[in-house]
Simulated assay, not measured.
Amino acid sequence: MEQSFGSYLKQLREERGWSMNQLAQAAEISGSQISRIENGLRGVPKPQTIRKIADALDGSYEELMKRAGYLESEHTDQKSGVDIPVPEWATYKDKRDFKKMLEDDGDLMFDGIPLDQEDKQRIKDVLTGLFWEAKQMNKRNKKR
């Protein structure tokens, strides 16, 4: 049986020797939210929350996203050759839209200063999570 996201988060936290409150403080989210996630009383957190947890634990954002069910399969970015996670439910059209979004590869700048590769990757990670979350929400809304 596959481990739930909450159980996996608890395992990571305990391996670090942290209390729920220590993780909550490091991730800048509430202790009650950590408790609800770990005890299965709350659904899977949003990608932004998962990013905060991953950063707090110095863990892999991608692995947490996979455990949360956001990322299932891989898509290869043609330019970099890097595998980019794609949810299992994504249709051909969804994948096409995602590829189009990633191919718009102009220089990324902040305050007129080009971003380094690490910052670009962090932005790509956040955009990937937001893109798939929005797609999934749109699919749910169409079913109603």
Rank of each mutant, 00 (worst) to 15 (best):
K46P: 00
D77I: 04
Y70N: 02
Y92P: 06
D77R: 14
P47S: 12
V86F: 01
D58Q: 14
I50G: 07
K46A: 15
L41F: 14
M65Y: 08
A54L: 04
G59V: 03
P47A: 14
S80C: 06
G81C: 10
R96Y: 02
Q48A: 15
R51I: 03
A90Q: 02
P47G: 11
F98S: 02
I84F: 03
R51T: 09
L57Q: 09
G59W: 11
Y61D: 05
K95N: 02
A54Y: 07
K79I: 09
S60E: 01
V44P: 00
R51E: 09
G43A: 09
E62Y: 00
A90C: 00
D97E: 14
R67H: 12
A54C: 08
M65R: 09
T76P: 01
A90S: 11
P85H: 12
S60C: 02
Q48C: 03
H75T: 05
V82S: 04
K52F: 04
K66V: 10
L64M: 10
D83G: 12
A68L: 08
L57R: 13
K46M: 12
G69D: 00
T76E: 10
D97G: 13
K95Q: 13
L64S: 07
V44S: 13
S73R: 14
K52H: 12
W89E: 03
V82M: 08
L64H: 05
Y70Q: 05
K66H: 09
Y70F: 15
R67Q: 14
D94C: 03
T91M: 02
P45G: 11
A90F: 01
M65I: 02
Q48R: 14
I50T: 05
G59A: 15
S80I: 03
A68W: 01
Q48F: 06
K93I: 01
K46S: 15
K52G: 04
H75N: 02
K79D: 00
K95M: 09
R51D: 01
E63P: 02
S60W: 00
Q48D: 12
Q48E: 15
S73V: 00
G69K: 08
E63F: 06
V86Q: 08
P85T: 03
K66M: 10
K95C: 01
I53T: 12
K93W: 00
S80R: 10
F98L: 04
E88T: 08
E74L: 11
Y92N: 11
G59N: 12
L64D: 06
S73W: 00
A90W: 04
T49N: 11
D55M: 11
Q78S: 13
S80P: 02
Y70C: 03
G81W: 00
G59S: 15
R96D: 04
E62R: 13
D58S: 15
E72L: 01
D83E: 12
D58C: 08
